[in-house]
Design a binder for these strands. Structure first.
Lengths: 352, 352
DNA sequence: TTGAAAGCGCTAACAC
DNA sequence: GTGTTAGCGCTTTCAA
C-alpha cells in the first residue's frame, strides 16, 4: 500500500498526472486521454477546460506509463563498437536523423568491441522494451550470431550476418573497384594493408580485390602484405612494405584510417603521395577529403546504409505477422569509387 | 477491458511476466520480486523454483514497468548539436562510457543546431522520464537559458550557462595559452580565424588571447581577422588574410577543424606550415595528431569534462533535497597546450 | 520467509 | 461526447 503524499490534491501543487488534469478540468481521465491522442472529438468547451488544466499543471504525458499500456516504447537501441571511429560515428549520426524523422528515440550503446559488453547492452535494451535493435555485430567469427534469439526485431548493420536481416556495403564490389582503379592507373606492384582476413568485411574486400588482380594476371606478393587490426597502428607499419625491392608502387588499405596513418608514415619517410606511391583507401570518412591532396577511396554509402537499416527495422516492427518467420532480408549497398588525388601513374624511372 | 489473449496460461508459451514466473514456481509475485532484487532472503528451495521458472520462461524484468513504480528510469538524455564534429563525438563517447560504469542508459539526441529541434528533444526526454539531462546548449545568446524550467536535473556541457550547473573548459585560459605560445615563439604579426564572437566560448578564447597580446603591446589587425561559423568553410577562406603585406606569420584558429581546413588551403596556395606560417588550433581533436607535422593546439580535456558532467548530474539526481534550490555549480576544466609541429619561429628574411 | 493487495500513469473497451 | 473501469508489469507495505 502507498502512504498518502502530503501534497495538496487540488492546488497547482498537485502532481501532473492525467487523473489530476481530469479532476481539474472536471472531466474523466479517459476524456483527457482522448484529447491528447485525438482519439475522439471533444465538445469545444470541454476541450478548453482540458487545455487549461494541462497548462495549469504543466502536464506532459508520462511515456513510461503509456508504453507499458501500449507495449511499444517508440524507441530503438543502436549498438556500435565505438563512436570515434569516423565511419561508425557518421552512421550513428545518420541513424539518429532518420529516427528523428520517424519520431523514434535512440538509445546509444557502445560495446568497445567487448563481446560481454555487447551482450549486456543487448539484454538491457530488451529489458527496456525497445521496439527494435540496430547493431554492428562484433563477433568476428559469427559463432554467436546464429544463436542469437531475438525477442525483439533486430537488424544487423555494416556486416552481413547469416540468418538475420542486415544492411551492409557490397564489400566485394568495393574491393573490385579499388583494384580496377589501381590497375587502370598503370600499377602492377601493389601492396596490401589488410585488416584481419577472418573478418568477413575484410575478407570480402580482399576477395574482390584479388579476383580483379588475378584476372589481370597479377597478385599481391606476401612481402607486400601486412595484416592486423584496422587501426592507426597498422598504417604506421607501412614501412615494412619497403624493406626490399621491388617496392610496391601502390598500396590498398582496407580502410581510410589505415590509409591515412600510412600516408603520414610515408611522408615521414620521404615518400611523396601520389608521386612515389599511390594510396587508395576504403570508407570515405570525412577526413579523407581534407588531406592534401585528398584521398582516393572507395566510399561506403553511410547515409544509404543508415536509412535502409532504419527502414528495414521499422518495417519489421510494424509487421503484424511475427517477424521471426520471415526470411531475413539482406540489403547490400553498392559502394562508389571516389577518384581524388592520392592515386597517380606509377613513377616513371622505377622506384624512388 | 482487455480481451483475453489466446495464449496458453501455463505452458512455456505463457508470457514472461513476474506473475507467470510466480505461478510457475508456485509462489507469489512479490516473492519473485524479492528474489530478483535481493530484497529478501528466500528459502533455498523456493529460490530454486523461482530460478527454474525464470529460465523456463526466459524471463527478464520489464524496465518500463519497474520505472513506473520506482519513478526512476536509470537513463539520462544527452543533447548535442551533432555527432560528426569530432569534439562532440568524442564527448559523447566518453559520456557513454562513464554512464556505462554507473549502469545508466543514454538517450542520444542531436539538435543539428536547430533550437526547435533541441527544445523538442528536451521535452521528449522529460516526457520519457529520464533521470537527468546533459546538454550542449545551442542558443548563442543565452536568452532562453534563464527561462528553462527544469523539471529534471540538468547539466550544461561545453558552454557555461548562467543560472544552471555546467561543466566547460576554461576558454579564457585556453586563449591565453595560445597567445603566449605564439609570442614566445617570436611572432608579432598574428592573424585570427575566429568563430562568431557572440558565442560565449569563442568570446572567452578571444578575450584570453587578446589580453595576452595587449600585455605585450600587440594586437590583431582588422585585416588579419576572419569571422564566421567555426567550420571548414571558414578555414578555407584563410587566403583572405594574405591579400596584402605585411603577411601574418602565425594564425590562431579558434578550433581545430578550422585550423585543419586552413592548413589545407595554405598548402594549396604554396605556403608551408610551419615554415612560412605557423598555425595553432583549439580542441585537440583526434585528427590533429595525424597531420604531418602534427597540429599544435590547445587541448580541451574532453574526458575530464565528460566525467565531471556525469558525476555532477548523478549527484544532482541522488540529492534528496530539491536540486532546484542548490546554487548551481560551475566546473571549469583547464585546457592544456599541446606543443607539436605546426608552430615555429617566424621566417627569417621577412615573408614568403 | 512468504503472500495479498494496492497502485505507479496511462489507454481502451464498453456503457451511457 | 463522456465516464467507468480494468489492467499493462512491477514493487512494496503490511500481515500472516
Amino acid at each position: 500500500m502507498q502512504r498518502a503524499e502530503p501534497v495538496s490534491t487540488t492546488g497547482p501543487g498537485m502532481k501532473a498526472t492525467i487523473r489530476n488534469v481530469a479532476k481539474l478540468a472536471g472531466v474523466a481521465p479517459s476524456t483527457v486521454s482522448h484529447y491528447l491522442n485525438r482519439t475522439a472529438q471533444l465538445a469545444p468547451e470541454t476541450a478548453q477546460n482540458v487545455e487549461r488544466a494541462i497548462a495549469a499543471l504543466d502536464y506532459r504525458v508520462n511515456w513510461g506509463a503509456r508504453s507499458l499500456r501500449l507495449k511499444r516504447t517508440h524507441s530503438i537501441g543502436l549498438i556500435i563498437p565505438n563512436i570515434n571511429t569516423p565511419y561508425f560515428g557518421e552512421l550513428a549520426g545518420i541513424i539518429e536523423n532518420v529516427l528523428w524523422d520517424r519520431s523514434y528515440q535512440m538509445l546509444l550503446c557502445i560495446s568497445e568491441r567487448d563481446p560481454e559488453r555487447e551482450l549486456s547492452h543487448f539484454a538491457t535494451l530488451v529489458s527496456r522494451q525497445v521496439d527494435g535493435i540496430l547493431m554492428v555485430y562484433n563477433q568476428e567469427r559469427e559463432n554467436r550470431a546464429a544463436q542469437t534469439k531475438t525477442p525483439v526485431p533486430l537488424v544487423f548493420l555494416d556486416r552481413a550476418v547469416t540468418g538475420a536481416p542486415s544492411v551492409s556495403s557490397d564489400n566485394y564490389l568495393g574491393g573490385k573497384l579499388a583494384a580496377e582503379h589501381l590497375i587502370s592507373s598503370g600499377h602492377r606492384q601493389i601492396a596490401l594493408l589488410s585488416g584481419e582476413p577472418a573478418i568477413r568485411n575484410v575478407a570480402d574486400r580482399l576477395a574482390g580485390f584479388n579476383d580483379v588482380l588475378a584476372r589481370h594476371g597479377l597478385r599481391v606478393l606476401p612481402e607486400h602484405t601486412l595484416e592486423g587490426l584496422q587501426d592507426l597502428e597498422l598504417g604506421s607499419r607501412v614501412g615494412e612494405l619497403f624493406l626490399k625491392r621491388p617496392y610496391p608502387t601502390a598500396v590498398f588499405a582496407t580502410n581510410d584510417i589505415v590509409a591515412i596513418s600510412a600516408w603520414c608514415e610515408l611522408v615521414r619517410r620521404g615518400f611523396r603521395v601520389p608521386g612515389d606511391v599511390s594510396l587508395i583507401g576504403f570508407d570515405d570518412i570525412q577526413m579523407s577529403r581534407f588531406l592534401v591532396p585528398p584521398l582516393t577511396t572507395v566510399a561506403q554509402a553511410a547515409p544509404r546504409i543508415g536509412r535502409e537499416a532504419v527502414e528495414l527495422l521499422v518495417d519489421l516492427i510494424n509487421r503484424k505477422d511475427q517477424f521471426v518467420n520471415a526470411a531475413p532480408t539482406h540489403v547490400k549497398v553498392a559502394p562508389a569509387l571516389m577518384v581524388r588525388g592520392s592515386v597517380a601513374a606509377p613513377p616513371e624511372g622505377g622506384e624512388p
